[in-house]
Amino acid sequence: MVRPTIPRNYKGLLDVVLAGRVRYMGRVVVRDYGVRNSRLWVHGEIHMTVPLDIYYEHMVRHKKNSGKLIGGIDVNTDRLNLAIIDERGDLRDYKTFWFSETSRKGFSRRRAWSIIGMRIHEMLDYAYHHGVKTLFLENPEVLGRLKLMWIRNGDRGHENYNHKVAIFRSSIIERIAIKAPLYSIETKYVNPRGTTSSIEHDELMRKYGLDRHTTSAHLIALRGLKHQ
């Protein structure tokens, strides 16, 4: 008999699926197997794909959001930088969510995404409890086009040049956008051009005395406020 371990917060969603009220696609992934004490053992996972609206309905963490503030997120390979501003553009708060251990050589990719997922939830929970209603992210499609431009120009020293880094950052951005509705936070995108290297960025960094990544998050929030 196989008895899967089911996280408590997935029970409501799983009950709906097993009751047959939702169509789903499923698969079993075997991670490892062997023989112990003359008995076969198998370690694996059960994956289910359900409609996104059903996922939001049963996995929501905060159904209402009375916040009025705006957040900006700068995504890097080892951290998430959050900056929060008000409707006038004044900086109200900022915080960094680290996952630097995931970039160590030999670190399990599966474990890395698990840790990054936890940091994403921590960031969204922090944003929700600090009044963020709308969260702005760099547009991953534009990030991809900028990467091609940097390659054509031979700018190999640029921090976004590496293809794997660009894909990794875009994947994190997409996961933030998927998880944000669980906290009743709306996500929107801004053009990432100049958010990490520009006169505007440098002036903002000097004005507030912030590090360059937090400044990027601040600039993303300001662009979102300007164009929303």
Rank of each mutant, 00 (worst) to 15 (best):
His47Ser: 12
Asp90Ala: 11
Ile70Phe: 15
Ser38Ala: 10
Trp113Leu: 04
Ile120His: 01
His129Glu: 10
Arg23Pro: 04
Leu143Phe: 11
Pro51Met: 00
Ser184Glu: 04
Gly106Glu: 03
Pro51Gln: 00
Met123Asp: 02
Gly71Asp: 07
Gly44Leu: 00
Met59Phe: 09
Phe168His: 12
Lys226Val: 01
Glu141Gly: 13
Thr214Lys: 09
Arg169Trp: 03
Glu57Gln: 14
Val17Ala: 09
Tyr126Lys: 09
Asp202His: 12
Ser198Tyr: 02
Tyr24Asn: 04
Leu225Lys: 13
Phe97Pro: 03
Ile84Ala: 07
Arg21Leu: 08
Arg110Val: 13
Ile120Gly: 00
Thr195Ala: 01
Arg39His: 03
Val28Ser: 14
Val75Lys: 09
Tyr128Ala: 10
Leu82Val: 04
Val22Ser: 03
Arg31Cys: 00
Lys95Cys: 05
His43Arg: 14
Glu159Gly: 07
Ile120Phe: 00
Ile172Trp: 01
Pro51Gly: 00
Ile84Leu: 04
Glu159Phe: 05
Ala19Pro: 07
Ile199Ser: 13
Glu203Tyr: 01
Glu141Val: 13
Leu146Gln: 13
Met118Ala: 13
Arg23Cys: 04
Glu122Trp: 00
Tyr10Asn: 11
Ile115Glu: 09
Arg23Val: 00
Trp150His: 14
Arg111Gly: 10
Gly44Pro: 03
Tyr189Glu: 15
Arg104Met: 06
Tyr208Ile: 12
Lys68Asn: 15
Asp78Leu: 07
Gly44Ala: 11
Gly194Ser: 08
Thr49Gln: 10
Leu135Lys: 11
His227Gln: 13
Gly34Phe: 08
Val16Phe: 00
Thr102Asp: 06
Leu80Tyr: 02
Trp113Thr: 12
Tyr56Cys: 00
Val50His: 07
Glu87Ile: 06
Pro51Ser: 05
Val22Asn: 01
Gly194Gln: 02
Tyr55Ile: 00
Leu137Asp: 06
Val42Asn: 00
Ser197His: 15
Leu204Val: 10
Lys207Val: 04
Leu14Thr: 01
Lys63Pro: 04
Ile151Asp: 10
Val60Met: 06
Leu148Ala: 12
Trp41Ala: 04
Gly26Glu: 08
Gly34Leu: 04
Arg109Trp: 07
Arg152Asn: 11
Arg119Cys: 08
Asn37Val: 06
Glu57Asp: 10
His62Ile: 08
Asp202Cys: 01
Gly26Ile: 07
Ser197Asp: 15
Phe99Cys: 03
Leu40Val: 15
Phe97Ser: 02
Leu143Gly: 15
Leu135Phe: 07
Ile46Lys: 09
Ile46Pro: 08
Glu159Val: 12
Tyr189Asn: 14
